[in-house]
Amino acid sequence: MSSWGALLRRGHLGTEADRATFRTLHTASQASPPLRAGLTTSSAERSLKYLRALLGAPAVAMTDTTDLLAWDGGRNHHAVQPPVIAAGTLGNGRTVVVDGADIACIEPSCLIRQAIVAPLEVDEKVVGTLQVFTGSASASLVRATTEVARWVSGQLELAELDASRTRLMEAEVRALRAQISPHFVYNSLTAIASFTRTDPERARELLLDLAEFTRYSFRRHGEFTTLAEELRSIEAYLVIEKARFGDRLRVTLRVAPEVLPVVVPFLCLQPLVENAVQHGIEGKVGDGEITILAQDADHECLVTIEDNGVGEDPEKVRRALAGDGNTDSVGLANVDERLRAAFGDDYGLVVETAEGAGTKVTVRLPKFRPGVHV
């Protein structure tokens, strides 16, 4: 039995009215997760039994703008009617009560005489209907159906927001890929070419590293990857940059084996390392150093990327993390947003920097999060 059920059974929620309220909230909470996936056949099928329980109706249906998505409650001989009786509400956006020939049937034992059709709206646009089939559409049931439809609409609005945010983040990942500039490719190939005569084997290895880096960066599948895969791409990138910088660039990479399987958003660390090279070390006079540590921290993995480069104005970094697209640290904002979207607000970036003092970026990652997998 769920914790809600246990509380109700033990009578810890006070009066019968209190218990009825909590039962209603619990039922609504069970309908919410499917609806947060959007208005689909699957979400309608999984949520309707809870919506019917909320309304206490003999049967309920859900449609989109053209078709029946799901029916719950038996009396399936009425299941052909929802797309037809939805037309009025889809056109005017109002809750209506339908009766007579529109819901008539030839079953003598069927008690359904009326249907309440309420609009489902997203961004002020009617995207479907919630329908309640009943023997008598009382005023209270009409009000309840309208309110439940508004609540369902709210869940669908949240689903659309989630989908919009996902589309935005995917677009930003494409933008990150596009930032693998011709300048970097040109410099990499120039560095490789310089070894073709003096050290052909090293030139060959660098070409393989460049191929590995580009293969990973432009892969088409999966929102998530493992820390091991992300670090492998970073290592290939840094090998190429070390060939270009020569002895000017020192790299320290220390990784606890226990954290290699940790699941991370795709391209969540690589942009941070590229930022350390391009904005930290590139403009520095003298030697540059980058240190990457991935440590086991109980239920979490702690990754730090630190450079001794030119540093950055902390206010500029703050604005970048707040979403100011006018800075040249778009990669930071993208990574921060995707970490928060995947794991919650406790898992964004922490950036410590000052002009002339280098930069340290800390990333906390949960070792496991339900729903997050490769």
Rank of each mutant, 00 (worst) to 15 (best):
S2Q: 03
S3F: 11
S3D: 10
A6C: 04
A6G: 02
L7V: 01
L8Y: 03
H12I: 13
T15D: 15
T15Q: 12
A17K: 15
R23M: 10
P34E: 11
R36D: 10
A37D: 14
A37P: 00
S43W: 02
A44I: 14
R46T: 02
L48Q: 05
A53S: 13
L54I: 04
A61E: 05
A61S: 11
A61D: 01
T65C: 10
D67C: 01
L69Q: 10
A70G: 10
A70W: 05
D72V: 12
R75D: 06
I85A: 08
A86D: 02
A87G: 04
G93K: 11
R94K: 07
R94E: 09
V98S: 01
G100D: 02
G100Q: 04
D102C: 02
P108M: 06
I112L: 15
I112Y: 04
Q114V: 01
I116A: 00
I116C: 04
V117D: 05
L120Q: 02
E121K: 15
V122L: 01
K125A: 12
K125R: 13
V127K: 08
T129A: 10
T134C: 14
S138A: 12
A144Q: 12
V148H: 00
A149T: 03
S153F: 00
Q155D: 05
L158E: 14
A159N: 10
E160F: 07
A163F: 10
L176Y: 04
I180F: 15
I180E: 09
V185R: 12
Y186C: 03
T190C: 08
A191S: 15
D199A: 15
R204A: 14
L207F: 09
L208G: 12
D209E: 15
F213A: 07
T214R: 14
T214W: 07
F218R: 07
R220D: 15
T225L: 09
T226V: 06
L227V: 01
L231F: 08
L231N: 05
R232T: 14
R232H: 11
S233D: 02
I234H: 06
A236F: 11
A236M: 08
L238I: 01
A243H: 01
D247V: 03
R248L: 15
V251A: 07
L253K: 10
E258A: 11
V259S: 06
L260S: 03
V262W: 00
L267G: 00
Q270M: 03
P271M: 04
A276R: 00
V277Y: 00
E282G: 00
G283Y: 05
G288Q: 09
E289T: 07
E289Q: 03
I290M: 02
A294H: 08
Q295P: 01
Q295Y: 00
D296R: 04
A297W: 06
D298C: 05
L302G: 00
V303G: 07
T304A: 06
I305K: 05
N308R: 13
V310S: 10
E312Q: 14
D313I: 12
P314W: 04
P314G: 12
V317R: 05
A320L: 03
L321C: 04
S329Q: 14
V330P: 00
G331Q: 11
A333V: 08
V335L: 13
E337Y: 07
R340D: 04
R340H: 02
A342G: 03
G356S: 13
G356F: 13
G358D: 10
K360W: 04
K360H: 09
L365A: 10
P366T: 00
K367P: 03
R369W: 08
P370R: 02
V372M: 04
V372P: 01
V372L: 06
V374K: 11
V374H: 13
